[in-house]
Amino acid sequence: MSRVVEKFTTRVPRWRPHVRPLAFDEATGEQRDALRETPSGTKISDYVLVLAHDPQALSARTPLFNGIMYAPGGLSRAEREIGATAASFVNHCIYCAAVHASRYNQITGDTTLMRKLFVDGEKADIDPRAKAIVRFSVRLSECPPQVEADDITKLREQGLDTQEILDLALSTALFGWANRLMHTLGEPVSDD
């Protein structure tokens, strides 16, 4: 029995597509090429098989996703995951929030930050650097985006340099993209 997951969780649900995933044995050469690399290097999921309906877009998107989240230098991987999770929070993408909150927990070995964020959102009692990052990412994810010069100043006051702010903008905006795919082309379900 499957039910739709409607509350934020760090237990990663299953993603049930609303659009028919491509059958791998029906894939064209271009579609197979686009499926060679996967987001975060995971197995070929229903999600990427749905996106494979547009192979030109997918073959640029996957290396872009992996580069924004994992390329060395600049902002730490953990803080990129905060940006991703904050965007998913605003856009109510429960699947993305679960995946990226749990990745943050794995990287840092700390579960308190995400637990506080899931309970109290932007008002969560967390360290000032994480708070400035969350505030920036939440405001950038609004529509229209609300980020102003003052939000940049607040990040600089917490020690983020230009490279780190650019990397945070990329990971947050990337989830403005990912959430709009995952949360509209399918939904999270729990199989009990």
Binding site: V19, V50, L51, H53, D54, A57, R61, L140, S141, C143, P145, A169, L170, T172, A173, L174, G176, W177, A178, R180, L181, T184, L185
Partner: peptide
């Protein structure tokens, strides 16, 4: 449907960066 979702999602990323 996938092409349309991809277009909307991309432009929303682009304008934020």
């Amino acid at each position: 449907v996938v092409r349309l979702a991809g277009l909307v999602a991309f432009v929303n990323y682009q304008c934020r960066v």
